[in-house]
Simulated scan of single mutants.
Amino acid sequence: MSAAQTTIAVIYDYDQTLSPTYMQDETLFPHFGINANQFWKKSRELVDQQGYDGELAYLKCMLDYLEMDRPTNDELVKLGAQLRYYKGVPEVFDELNGTLSQQHRSLGIKIEHYIVSSGLKALLDGSSLAPSVKRIFGCEFGTDKDGRISFPKRVISHTTKTQYLFRINKGMLEPHEDVNDHMDPELRPIPFQNMIYIGDGPTDVPCFTLMKRYGGHAIAVYNAEETSRASFRKCYQLNALADRVKHIAPADYRAGSHLRLLLEEMILDIADSIVRKKKLEIEEGTVSAPHF
């Protein structure tokens, strides 16, 4: 039996997508007295000089810097309450849910929000975003016998982010579920055509590429208040030069903004296509009574 396929998934990167800053900079570093510039310099050196993957480099730096005062995961969750966002976040999650019409809802069409980040899941779990999001995927630490973070438990790099798009696609949201198991397209609860991915730059290219390949939707966002224009240039290159995304917009999630208009139209287009598909299924499954 095929899946209903009436769910629309809006999937967000976090750092510089939902927030203008990196989550560590505004939570961990001030709390533990860590110099952000020195931290990221050391992390970059591990990548450039010792061949570390970027995400493993920053996780190792965290453990090194916190060697004498390692927090518990619960303490990291509490720090997540300090996270700040772009304008219109977190209100956008509930407001986008109101985009659907009564006809859409009568057919069971709904919107789910997901975050897929290379940042720390614990911080996001403690944020004001968590209650409005179906699932948060991020890097995680295991703990020692005293409950202190001790070793990376899960690492999400910019390339492995695509695994989580497939998890959403197949409804395999739990870590123990093998996302590589074969599943026929009609059995997948959220087709890629029902997905919208929002990211900010080159680290999101694998996800942008996946969306383009399988008929999904993607938007690259930039910080319009950044005077250097570096954020905008990244998106411009992804759009005009590399042809990775069709749409770019300032990271303003408020009603009436360019980004919100794009999101609302994409949601309506997806919802209307689901309606057309359902009507076609009904018509093809209906056999007319004989006429006399």
Results as ranks from 00 to 15, higher is better:
100 L>E: 03
68 M>P: 05
72 T>R: 14
34 I>S: 01
158 H>M: 08
200 D>P: 02
288 S>P: 05
187 L>S: 12
220 A>L: 06
123 L>H: 04
12 Y>F: 12
183 M>W: 00
137 F>D: 01
256 G>S: 06
47 V>S: 14
49 Q>N: 15
263 L>S: 03
254 R>G: 07
193 Q>P: 02
118 S>L: 10
285 G>I: 08
214 Y>Q: 08
20 P>A: 02
122 A>K: 11
38 Q>E: 15
266 M>H: 12
190 I>V: 13
99 T>V: 15
277 K>G: 11
185 P>N: 08
269 D>P: 04
74 D>R: 15
288 S>V: 09
20 P>N: 02
248 I>Y: 00
33 G>A: 04
74 D>E: 15
227 T>S: 14
190 I>Y: 00
148 R>K: 15
283 E>H: 13
215 G>K: 01
8 I>Q: 05
106 S>K: 15
215 G>A: 02
193 Q>I: 10
254 R>H: 07
264 E>R: 09
265 E>R: 13
194 N>A: 08
158 H>E: 08
198 I>G: 00
94 D>S: 13
279 K>F: 12
168 I>G: 04
90 P>R: 04
23 M>W: 00
93 F>D: 01
95 E>L: 10
148 R>Y: 10
50 Q>M: 12
208 F>N: 03
125 D>H: 09
183 M>S: 03
129 L>I: 07
192 F>G: 01
116 V>N: 00
156 I>E: 01
39 F>L: 09
118 S>C: 14
264 E>F: 06
201 G>M: 07
222 Y>K: 01
204 D>W: 06
117 S>Y: 04
178 D>F: 07
252 D>F: 00
253 Y>N: 00
246 K>C: 07
39 F>P: 11
205 V>D: 08
243 D>G: 09
75 E>N: 10
73 N>E: 14
114 Y>I: 08
286 T>K: 12
116 V>W: 00
45 E>T: 15
204 D>G: 07
3 A>L: 08
201 G>F: 03
273 S>R: 14
181 D>M: 13
166 F>H: 14
14 Y>G: 03
169 N>L: 11
83 L>D: 03
223 N>Q: 07
234 K>E: 06
260 R>V: 03
260 R>W: 11
181 D>N: 14
133 V>M: 08
173 L>V: 07
86 Y>P: 00
186 E>W: 01
259 L>G: 01
129 L>M: 08
47 V>T: 15
54 G>D: 10
269 D>V: 09
207 C>K: 04
141 F>H: 06
52 Y>T: 10
76 L>N: 03
141 F>N: 04
63 L>R: 07
55 E>R: 14
209 T>H: 13
75 E>S: 09
155 V>P: 04
269 D>W: 07
209 T>N: 13
44 R>E: 15
120 L>G: 05
236 Y>S: 12
2 S>L: 11
119 G>T: 09
17 T>H: 02
269 D>K: 13
292 F>M: 13
179 V>I: 12
186 E>Q: 08
69 D>K: 15
89 V>Y: 01
60 K>V: 11
144 D>Q: 06
207 C>T: 10
198 I>R: 02
120 L>T: 03
171 G>V: 01
263 L>F: 02
177 E>Q: 15
174 E>S: 14
274 I>G: 02
188 R>N: 05
139 C>N: 11
57 A>P: 06
179 V>L: 05
248 I>S: 00
126 G>Q: 06
184 D>I: 04
